[in-house]
Structures are given as C-alpha cells and as structure tokens.
Design a protein around this nucleic acid. Structure first.
Ligand code: SF4
Ligand code: SF4
Lengths: 154, 154
DNA sequence: CACAATGCGACCCATCAGGTAGTATTACTG
DNA sequence: CAGTAATACTACCTGATGGGTCGCATTGTG
C-alpha cells in the first residue's frame, strides 16, 4: 500500500470536515489553504468524495463542503481503497482487487505478503475516521524513535 | 508499500537460488523460464542483486548465478527497501527515507499510517529468506477465505 | 443582477516502470 | 586456440499514470 497524493489530500480534507462537523460549509479555498493542497486539484478530489457520499456540497455563496456521513461509519480502509484500489502490497494477495499470477502454486514469499496485507487491512478496516480523530498527533521525538515501537493499537 | 515488478521478479529469482543453494550456477535463461520473467529485464535485476552482494555470477559456459550470502542473513525488508525505497505507506513515516511534510504538527491520520508502517516493517525485517523458505505456499482455499485470517506469525 | 461558490470536461506534462537491443567480455571445452 | 555459451554493460524506447492546470458552465445567495 503506497498512498498516492490524491489519497493523502483526500484524507487531509476529510479530517478538516470531521473537525468542523455541524458547522457551516467550508469552501474549497479554505480547505486547500489549511491543508496545503493545490485548490484546483482538490476540486476533483472533493467531487470524488461527494460521489462516494462521504461529503456533501452546497453551491453558491456561502457554499462549500460538509461531512455527509457519520465519521464512525467511514473507515480508513474504505477511503484508501477507493482511491488507490487496494491495501495489499501486491495484487495476488488482494481481497478486493485480486489479480492472478502464474507462480501462485509455487511462490514461496507470497505468504509473507499475504500476512502483510492482513496486518494493514485489519488495522485500516477497524479504524474509523472518528477513531483517528480521537488519537493524538505524532510527536516529533516519537518519530525519532519509531524504530522501537511495536505498533499495537492506534 | 506497493511492490514493484522489479522487486517481485527479484524475489522470484532469489528464491530459486535459495532453493538450489550449493548446486551449480543457474543461468538467467533458466531463472527467467522457471519464474516467468522477461529474460532481458531479469538481467538488470540480477546485476543489481549482484552489486548488493546477494548473488554471485560466473560468466562463460556453465556460468550463471548462485546465492552469495546466507539466506538467514537476508531479510525481506532489505530486499524490498533496496528496490522500492521504503516500506512505509507514505514518506512522512518512513524511517529509512523520511520526507518531511508541512502538516506534520497537525495531521491526524499520520499516526495510523505510522502504525501500519511499523506492522509491516517489523514483519519484513524479522523475516529472512530462510524463514520464508520454510513456510508452506498459500493454498487456493486459504486465499479464498483470507478475510478472516488475523495474520499473526508467518 | 452580481458575486461567490461548486461542477466538470479537456488538457498538459514530466516521470518512471517495464522492457528491448546491441555489443563487449569472460571462461569453459574439445 | 577456436567456438560457443554464458554474463556485463550501456543505451534507448515507450506507454501509462500520477499530479496538476484551465476555461467555462452552473448553481445559489443577497
Ligand atoms: S510471484 Fe508470488 S508474490 Fe509475486 S505475484 Fe506471483 S504469486 Fe504473487
Ligand atoms: S498530511 Fe499527514 S500523512 Fe500526509 S504527509 Fe503530511 S503528515 Fe504525513
């Protein structure tokens, strides 16, 4: 799973909307500024999010975007999958977008890739936007020593 | 971590070499055939593996490739990283090829991505080629129900 | 109506993964 | 030592795609 810019941008926008849930619509320009995303590009992404039913838009003056769905009902996995196709490190072990390979019957390392996909898929599918919102941001010196972390829970 | 074809091909070749460790050199043509990899392309990859010191080549008649390093001393993580740069789903949480992002101080979902990276990194860095070799191949109906698997151990 | 917003198709454009080709070199074998 | 079977190496091709811009239409508010 390599996150594309699209997905990253989408998530940035989504979380600002989660944060301002209940408030007035937020225009793209605002979303773009706050999250450091090219406005014009974000347009397309928002459109995409809208089609998916995750956000709602109101046009015209005082328009903008709002979250359209309960953030406890949107998982990280769904979002990433929608933009990037699948969570697996390779298509031959993807559940949602499986692609066959000629070597499957003999391939040795496929198992470890499957394990990897299961680890991230379980994590991502269990984690909702609401969950993420509750967790604290990563601190700088937490990053400095990530080597040691065992990565349990979020 | 999205595996590139290169990496996949490299691993295919590596494991055939692991399998025939101690035996005579295996020519590229053979490696290519057995693993269904374009021969010409594999050349580059093998050269790369050689520079890394993982395989050794002998030219001329009866030449070919052999594993040059103990498979217990090569981890999956090393191989993937060598070809694809890093294991993390995004550069801002990569240990080996960290890239800064302007949103780090406020980003909410970075934490879950960090967790994901730790899960796969731990797995991949703990798993050596020898380990992989010992594990059985994934069976077809195992694949069919991967949904339920919890992905512990390899 | 003017203005402020989204909607949307068209297009651009660099990068890169994946792959091909040609030729040089090496070394075993008879 | 000639022939041949292999790797070594450099250069190049080429299509797809990710990331991004533009112009114009549409919608809604004051
Ligand atoms: S070689 Fe193994 S891992 Fe790679 S695609 Fe085929 S089955 Fe999957
Ligand atoms: S937005 Fe968050 S996740 Fe995306 S790059 Fe910046 S810090 Fe990392």
């Amino acid at each position: 799973m390599q996150l594309s810019m699209r997905t990253d941008y989408a998530l940035r926008a989504l979380f600002t909307l989660v944060e301002h849930r209940g408030g007035p619509p937020i225009p793209i320009l605002e979303l773009a500024r706050r999250n450091d995303v090219p406005k014009r590009f974000l347009e397309h992404i928002m459109l995409d999010l809208k089609e998916k039913g995750w956000v709602a838009s109101t046009a015209g003056k005082r328009g903008g975007y709002q979250l359209a769905k309960n953030p406890e009902k949107i998982t990280m996995g769904e979002v990433v999958r929608h933009f990037d196709g699948y969570l697996a490190p390779i298509a031959c072990v993807s559940v949602t977008d499986y692609k066959r390979c000629t070597q499957e019957t003999t391939c040795r390392f496929r198992r470890v890739l499957l394990t990897a996909r299961n680890l991230v898929a379980n994590l991502m599918d269990r984690t909702t936007l609401a969950d993420v919102m509750k967790s604290p941001v990563v601190s700088p010196d937490e990053l400095r020593k990530i080597q040691g972390i065992d990565g349990e829970g979020i």
